[in-house]
């Protein structure tokens, strides 16, 4: 079932008198399924944050409709179910984290015990427990980001929207957030994820939408990235003749030509026959690589194609 649907949504910003209008989102259509991790990627100004703001009701589409659980989105209809982390969370300087979480819990209808229980669990998980009574203005960028994640998740939302959640985090913080997102995914939460760190998107998301110039250019499924299967060997082999290509494909190998190189992806169950064939034919294996096609390569290729 589609939990959220964007149907031909358009949004234009008016920057003011005598300035040209900016088409931020142009005929955007995509769906979010219940329980999936959906990643939205794209260059700066592609319209990702605008899409999120429309979903949150902070701005309204000029045309098109956003559906939530099959009904057009209305003011306040989604807020109880949503946890949102903006790209750079600006929190209240003079409050401490505990007060911020109490505000979050109270406004979401949680009682004091639930706020304390959930708050402590999240702060422990994100290594902020010791800083809970420090004013937020003394927090580092990474700590603010983690505090923002606590704020987003306190009321146990079923939909989590994360706009650049890894921004400003050190490797330990990134790992912490990565594991947390995986845990949320395991709990069956729907996660809408925007990031420029394509490696994270690739590892976390079930589906990935690529946006450019306000529109959705391409949708990728997890199957489009064989390295995500975890048991595929990717080899860089010497040039192959046409019959060799045919034979390798018949044995279950996948072939791809990339910048003059030949890549061969072999799944675990057909590795031995393919290996035997390569030995018989004297095809040299020049090396191995971890990715069949990286999201970055796809991203750059599609964006270049669009710009041309």
């Amino acid at each position: 079932m589609n939990l959220i649907s964007f149907n031909n949504v358009c949004k234009t910003y008016d920057p003011g008198l005598f300035k040209k209008k900016i088409q931020a989102v142009n005929d955007l259509s995509f769906d979010l399924q219940q329980g999936e991790v959906f990643g939205l990627i794209g260059p700066n100004g592609a319209g990702k944050s605008t899409a999120i703001r429309m979903l949150l009701g902070l701005i309204r589409p000029d045309s098109g409709t956003i559906f939530y659980k099959g009904r057009p989105l209305r003011e306040g209809s989604i807020q109880q179910d949503i946890g949102y982390l903006p790209e750079n969370p600006y929190l209240y300087d003079h409050l401490n984290l505990l007060e911020l979480l109490t505000f979050c819990g109270r406004s979401s209808g949680l009682d004091a015990d639930a706020i304390s229980e959930r708050g402590t669990a999240l702060m422990t998980r994100l290594n902020l427990l010791e800083a809970q009574k420090r004013p937020l203005r003394t927090f580092s960028k990474g700590m603010l980001q983690r505090a923002g994640i606590c704020f987003a998740l306190l009321h146990d939302p079923s939909i989590v929207i994360l706009d650049e959640p890894m921004s400003g985090l050190d490797p330990i913080g990134r790992k912490m957030v990565f594991d947390l997102v995986m845990e949320l995914k395991g709990e069956g939460k729907t996660i809408f994820f925007c990031s420029h760190i394509l490696n994270d998107v690739e590892r976390l998301c079930d589906r990935i939408g690529l946006m450019n110039r306000g529109g959705l250019v391409r949708l990728f499924a997890r199957a489009d990235f064989p390295q995500n299967d975890g048991n595929t060997v990717i080899l860089h082999v010497a040039p192959l003749s046409a019959p060799q290509r045919h034979d390798l494909q018949a044995l279950g190998g996948r072939l791809r030509q990339e910048e003059g190189e030949m890549l061969l992806a072999v799944a675990e169950d057909c590795y031995h026959p393919v290996n035997r064939y390569l030995e018989q034919q004297g095809v040299a294996v020049l090396g191995g690589r971890s990715e069949w096609v990286s999201l970055e390569e796809l991203f750059m290729g599609i964006i270049k194609e669009q710009e041309a």
Binding site: G76, Q79, Q80, G83, Y84, P86, Y90, Y92, C104, S108
Partner: peptide, 15 residues
């Protein structure tokens, strides 16, 4: 100004 309102309005608080 600082867009803290984005965080506040993402909670069940009407305008």
């Amino acid at each position: 100004d600082r867009k803290t309102i984005h965080l506040v309005l993402s909670k069940p608080i009407s305008r």
